[in-house]
């Protein structure tokens, strides 16, 4: 059987991700950096489900990411010391908020939609920022840490070992991206592509466009809040800036940088962005200018992204 390039790329990506903790130190990284890449890649890929495959621009995904972060932190700190329970609370909080806000904005299109997502995203930031007694306000929510996962027959010590935690992230990442890939290959996913390519035509074919966009938005926000729960575990901390608009912008630039028409694009984008940010912020006080300049350069010189350029011949 001949192996297609796509299949080969998939095998390569999974091989890299599965073995990363064993070689990342040799190339100057560290295991938590690998976990960070995976977590933010999951967030960017979730955003890209909406952005790249439904053609809807959201600039406010940090809100649902942040709800995952705070869902996890607050659960472990105040309710039950359990990572699994925290994950459940985080994704339910993110999805519930997305459901309500989605209903309000699903009829808007284009820039108007983007602006509404930006503005609504800020509500949760202000709640986290102002509700000192519960969320810790500007100082963030600390005084808790991730909990080992009870498998019944053994405990998975994600607290004691960075490597064990990396594999917990990988399990969540694999589950989430597997579901998203399956959805995109289903008739539902094809319908989303049809909406992206020509919304008016899709509507004339009898597709309930608003409902599909709402569903795509929900799926996207659900997985971005899952990424949020992982981010909370990674830092053992919840920071109000995790749900601010600059975080949303980071997700969008990761998707664009990697190539938003390719399934794995945001993963590549996240890897480049995270490594660069890690390096620049350790070198200079003015990392904000560098990140800003990076945004400008990507937009001006690199709008199709890494995988977009590689795919150019077959993209039509």
């Amino acid at each position: 059987m001949e192996m297609s390039p796509k299949r080969g790329a998939n095998i390569l990506i999974w091989a890299v991700l599965l073995t990363m903790p064993y070689w990342i130190n040799w190339i100057g990284g560290y295991t938590s950096l690998g976990s960070r890449v995976m977590v933010l890649a999951l967030a960017a890929m979730s955003l890209n489900f909406l952005l790249g495959f439904t053609g809807v621009l959201s600039f406010g995904h940090a809100a649902y990411f942040g709800l995952g972060v705070y869902g996890m932190g607050l659960t472990i700190k105040y309710l039950v010391p359990s990572t699994v329970a925290g994950t459940a609370v985080g994704v339910v909080a993110g999805a519930a908020a997305a459901a309500v806000i989605g209903l309000l904005i699903v009829r808007l299109r284009g820039i108007y939609f983007a602006m509404a997502t930006i503005a609504f995203g800020q509500v949760f930031y202000f709640i986290a920022y102002r509700w000192n007694t519960v969320t810790g306000g500007d100082d963030g929510l600390s005084g808790w840490h991730r909990q080992p996962i009870d498998l019944g027959f053994a405990a998975w010590d994600i607290l004691g070992s960075d490597r064990a935690f990396y594999y917990w992230v990988l399990v969540c990442f694999a589950g989430a991206t597997g579901i998203m890939a399956a959805l995109l290959h289903s008739p539902f996913g094809r319908t989303l592509l049809a909406i992206r390519e020509n919304e008016r035509r899709a509507r004339f074919l009898g597709i309930p466009v608003d409902r599909h966009i709402w569903l795509s938005w929900m799926i996207s926000c659900f997985f971005v809040s899952l990424a949020g729960t992982l981010y909370a575990l990674l830092n053992n901390f919840a920071d109000p800036h995790d749900l601010r608009w600059d975080q949303s912008g980071d997700f969008v630039i990761m998707a664009v940088l990697g190539g938003m028409r390719a399934f794995w694009g945001p993963l590549i984008g996240a890897a480049i962005f995270v490594v660069l940010q890690d390096y620049v912020s350790s070198q200079t006080q003015n990392w904000m200018s560098f990140i800003g300049l990076f945004f400008v350069l990507v937009v001006v010189f690199f709008p199709r992204g890494v995988l977009g350029i590689l795919h150019r011949p077959s993209s039509r």
Binding site: L57, I111, V252, I253, M288, G292, L293, V296, V299, V300
Partner: peptide, 15 residues
């Protein structure tokens, strides 16, 4: 696509 001007001005805001 308005996506690009949003990202560009976003970067400018940082700078």
């Amino acid at each position: 696509d308005p996506l690009y001007s949003l990202l560009l001005t976003f970067g400018l805001a940082f700078i």
